[in-house]
Structures are given as C-alpha cells and as structure tokens.
Design a protein around this nucleic acid. Structure first.
Lengths: 217, 217
DNA sequence: TATTACCTACGTATTAATACCTAGTATAGA
DNA sequence: TCTATACTAGGTATTAATACGTAGGTAATA
C-alpha cells in the first residue's frame, strides 16, 4: 500500500460463499463512510490471489468454503500479508473452529448472528491491530481452556480413533494397519484416558464432533 | 389480502436470524420491482404473528432459529395461512431437514449458496403455487428415498438408542428404564436391523447425525 | 376372530471389550 | 549419557456384547 494513500478509509475484502451474506455485508457496510469494500470472492483460494493484489486492511473471512477453507486461507495470508488483518465471520461456534482460526492468525472471530454495528466495530478494532471476538465466543474460550499437550491425540491415535469410530473392531483395525490388536487396545486405552471418557460411544461422539470421521458416512 | 390490491407485486416476508442474510436478501430483492419486502423478523415465533398481520404471498424462512425453528413455524403457517407460501432458505442440505420441511408444508427449499437470480425465480415459482428446490436438493431427495414404515424407529427404540449412544451399557439402560437388560438387547438388535448397521459405533453415529443425542455433550 | 406389531423377557454359546500389569525399541531433547 | 515419549506387543482375568432361537401379553386393525 502506498504511504498515506486512501488512509482515512479502511479497505475491506469479503470472502464468503453465500451471495446473501456478501450482499448483506456490502449493504450494511455501505452506511459507514470510513469503510470501503475493495473486493469480494466466494472461495479461499481466490481470496489469496486477490488479497495479494488488493492488499486490504481487513479481510472478512468465512470458514466453510468449497475449495479452500477460511482457516487455511487465513494462515497463508498471515504469513504473506502481515499487515492485512483477518476477521472470521462464521456459523461455527465450537471451540476447535475458533482455536484453529486463532492459531492460523485471525485477529477476530464473530458469529453470523452478529449485528451490523458489532461487525463494524470489529472491523475497526482489527484494522487498528486489536482483536475482537463475539462475547459468546470469548466466554466459550474461557470455559474451554486449550487442552494440555498431554491431552492432545497423537497422529497415530487419531488414525486409530477414526477407524474405531467408523465401526471397526480392534482386530479389524489391527489387520488394516498391520499391527497387533493388543497395540490397538493399548491405544484405545490411552485415547480414553486423554479424552477423559470411558466408553466406545463417547469415543465415537468425540470423533464425529471433532471431524475425525465424515458425517453421514 | 384485499382483492386486486397490490396484485402486481409479490409481497415477501423474511425470517432469518442472521442480520447479513436479511440485509443481503433485502438488497438483492430490491432490484426486482415485482417483489416487495413487507416485513422481516429473526425468529420463528414472531414470524407467526407477523405473518397473520401482513399476510404475505411468500415467506422466506430459515430453519435454525433460536426460539422457534423454521420447520415448526412453517407447519403452523401452512395450517393458518393456506394462501401464504413458505420457501425454506437454509444451510442444511441433509435429507431429514428437507423432508421435515416438505412434510411441514414448505413449497420450496433453497440452500444458502444459491444465487440471487435463483432465489428470485424460486420466489416467483412458489408465489404462483408451484414448488422450487435447489437442483442439489432435488437430486439428493431422489437418491435418498423416504424410509419405509418398517425401517423407522419406534419411540421406545429412539429412547433406547439415545441412551446407548450416550455411553450407557445395556445393563445401565435397563436399570434406568426399569426393564430387563434382555429387553434392551432385543431392542438393540431390532434397531440395528432397521438401520442396516452392525456395530455400536454405527449406531452412535446415526444418533449423533439424526439429532437423537445432543452435540458436544 | 385372526393377524400383526410392539414391547417385553429368557437361555445358551461365542466373541469382543476391557482392565491390569509388564516390557522392548526408536527417537528427541536436556 | 540420561530421560521422556510414542509406538509397539504380550499374558491373565473378568465383563459386556452379540447371535440365535424362543415366546408371552397387549393393542390395533382387517
């Protein structure tokens, strides 16, 4: 960005695959004369190239998008355009989505039921280098502290869990991974200890809710 | 509605709890001079009273809303305002959402990634008394025929399944429901036969995906 | 009256899961 | 070099799940 060029207005790029949401954001932000919509796209991959071209102050980014999701896009933008701030604008209020976004470098996270005014204030805050989270998001982050390192599942454990949650017995998982069924059992026990659960049903629910297994499969 | 009064314009009411979606719909439909937005609300319960007052030709209805969901609202509107058409406008593309909506009396179902033009055409179609479904919705309905009566779970079976899926053993479910664990086992076997699954993991996933158990619980 | 479906419950036999304990190898980090 | 972690794997014992078959009582429907 050229020094002092268009400095009084915050340039904003929209990245959302729902036409009505894009339209709604455009319409609502049009009321504020210190905000300028400089571009819009409906997928994360194109967002990257457009962001490099436009160098907006703020990007409003959805999470779920067809080609590249907003979290991955955010991570790359944070690396390649450190002066551009990303404000996540999403349906998803679960801790793992929010944490992924923060880890990827997002400066804020607001839910899609947020009022126009709050979206505007959030844009202003992140443009200044601050952060902004919906109050329910902040509350939820406080109530669900980050899992300790020793409570995270290793890669192998995730693989074991996804198979078990899909319905395979320990023997079937063992055969599939070419390991002993005792090894599978040992992993299951470790996984249960880490996740503080006791039953297979709880393991399955964790896997479904954390995207370790495809829905409707 | 008074005969011939304002007949050339289709009156439309918006029911969606996302301000940007409401804003986007309003903005996009403003381009069409044969459509008039006569009201908007963000919850299904208020939608009922406003609909009786305004008697719109078409209601654009979200599904997930805080106080009353769009399906329940649709059902009541279909009964009490038979000349008002409901067009569902939703994130959810799973068969059970779509079927619930149709059963409730909705005249159409479009997904939130639908273009402005298609939303406009859908409104026109349902205002005329036709139906309109996103092409992916139509395709999915064809591929997932309604379950036969003998494949639906009875009330008791759903209760058994929700307990089992929450992690209780057959003995624990038996104790909780004051029945024999043999009875629980018999139900489990019947449920598996009906759902065409073989393992507890598959039962749990069904329960999670069909809302028989709370997410993140 | 006969049939069907739902809910209930039992016995027998086999397999799977689980708990507990123990332990070797490889790799990374202090 | 030592320690910790991850991944691996074994034995023993107990409990749970599962399969198969059987069957009674109640209510609804033809």
């Amino acid at each position: 960005m050229i020094d002092n060029n268009n400095k009084s207005k915050i340039s904003v790029m929209l990245v959302d695959d729902h036409p009505m949401v894009q339209g709604g954001l455009t319409a609502c932000l049009a009321f504020y004369d210190d905000i300028e919509i400089v571009g819009a796209t409906d997928d994360g991959a194109e967002a990257l190239s457009k962001a490099k071209e436009l160098k907006p102050d703020v990007i409003i980014m959805d999470v779920s998008m067809p080609k590249m999701n907003g979290i991955d896009a955010t991570e790359i933008i944070s690396e390649q355009l450190p002066e551009t701030r990303v404000l996540i604008f999403s349906m998803h209020d679960r801790p793992e989505f929010v944490r992924s976004a923060i880890d990827a470098g997002a400066s804020g996270y607001v839910l899609k039921d947020t009022s126009s005014e709050e979206v505007y204030f959030a844009i202003k805050a992140v443009a200044k280098g601050n952060t902004h989270f919906s109050s329910s998001i902040s509350k939820m982050l406080i109530e669900n502290p980050m899992q300790a390192d020793n409570e995270r599942l290793t890669t192998r454990e995730q693989v074991i869990l996804s198979h078990v949650a899909s319905g395979l017995s320990s023997k079937e998982v063992a055969r599939k991974l070419d390991i002993s069924f005792r090894t599978v059992d040992a992993h299951r026990r470790n996984i249960k200890t880490k996740l503080k659960v006791e039953t297979l049903a709880e393991l399955v629910r964790y896997a479904v809710n954390h995207g370790l297994i495809e829905k409707n499969k």
